[in-house]
């Protein structure tokens, strides 16, 4: 598991450099997200473009990552691949997170 952060104006983009977020890496993902978002701006986008698969443990880790942002801040998600979208849709987590088709779409929104 490896995360990379970049700043785009007042938005932090955290890119997941892994092809899956599953039970074997859920705890590490959550911990690395805590470190990455310790002094995060109000808007944080998680770039899932490289992630081909998540299971319910990975989903839980993403939910936990949003909770640890604090307050009512919501994590936005970008670049969801088909299987990842399916897990979010089936569990209705697509109604909880703001989903952007691509990272480009997500960043374009912050300009407005």
């Amino acid at each position: 598991m490896s995360l990379t952060s970049t700043m785009h104006a007042q938005t932090q983009v955290i890119t997941v450099n892994a092809d899956r977020i599953d039970a074997a890496m859920a705890i590490r993902f959550k911990e690395e997200m805590r470190v990455e978002t310790e002094s995060a701006p109000d808007r944080v986008i998680l770039d899932l473009t490289s992630v081909q698969f998540i299971d319910s443990s990975g989903l839980g880790a993403i939910v936990a990552s949003m909770k640890q942002l604090g307050g009512n801040r919501r994590l936005e998600l970008a670049g969801l691949t088909p299987v990842v979208v399916k897990v979010f849709r089936l569990t209705r987590m697509d109604t909880v997170f703001t989903l952007h088709p691509t990272l480009g779409d997500a960043i374009a929104k912050c300009a407005g």
Binding site: S56, G60, A61, V63, V87, T91, R92, V96
Partner: peptide
């Protein structure tokens, strides 16, 4: 249920449902 306040969102319990 995901119709909860943010801090109460479930982090598991979806396995058998899926």
């Amino acid at each position: 249920s995901v119709d909860t306040p943010l801090q109460d969102l479930p982090e598991g319990g979806f396995g058998w449902f899926l």
